[in-house]
């Protein structure tokens, strides 16, 4: 059992200012005992992955409600590969139609949560998947 708590980056990308969901998730993960780094608004995919690498994060949660998810999620996946950080668990949420969510999962986004998703499901997912990553990476 690892002593250090899981560390998660919660990110907002592009021009989307809707930060209610991101902030609620950040607090829920923190209340569940994790360390949370909230990037603030208007980050580029490069910046988000850099933050995660520098902070030695176990996971990245990206929130997009502006409709730009099919552009920005794949760019983050690309950056994870480019920065040699493919082991970081990448998940996200927002106003994302079901078929887009499927395409994003096919691209390697581990989970997509849409409005109404229970916080407990998200916490459970992060604890389990990021916990596995931690067990492997140490």
């Amino acid at each position: 059992m690892n002593e250090r708590p899981l560390r998660i980056v919660i990110a907002k990308a592009g021009l989307d200012g809707h930060d209610r969901g991101a902030k609620v998730i950040a607090r829920a993960l923190r209340d569940a005992g994790m360390e949370v780094i909230y990037t603030g608004l208007f980050q580029t995919p490069e910046q988000i992955v850099q933050t995660a690498v520098q902070e030695d994060a176990d996971g990245i949660g990206l929130s997009i409600l502006s409709g730009a998810h099919m552009t920005l999620f794949p760019l983050v996946v690309e950056q994870l590969q480019a920065q040699g950080a493919g082991d970081i668990v990448f998940f996200g949420g927002g106003t994302i139609p079901p078929d887009d969510a499927q395409r994003l999962r096919d691209l390697g986004v581990r989970a997509i949560f849409t409005p109404g998703a229970p916080l407990q499901d998200i916490v459970d997912f992060v604890r389990s998947e990021c916990g596995k990553r931690r067990a492997l990476v140490g």
Binding site: G14, L15, D16, S66, G67, A68, M70, T71, L72
Partner: peptide, 17 residues
């Protein structure tokens, strides 16, 4: 979003939006 944030449609910040 790009219009609301003051960027033209061909700006780098506008990609995907």
């Amino acid at each position: 979003m790009p219009t609301l944030m003051g960027y033209d449609s061909d700006a780098a910040q506008a990609r995907g939006e």
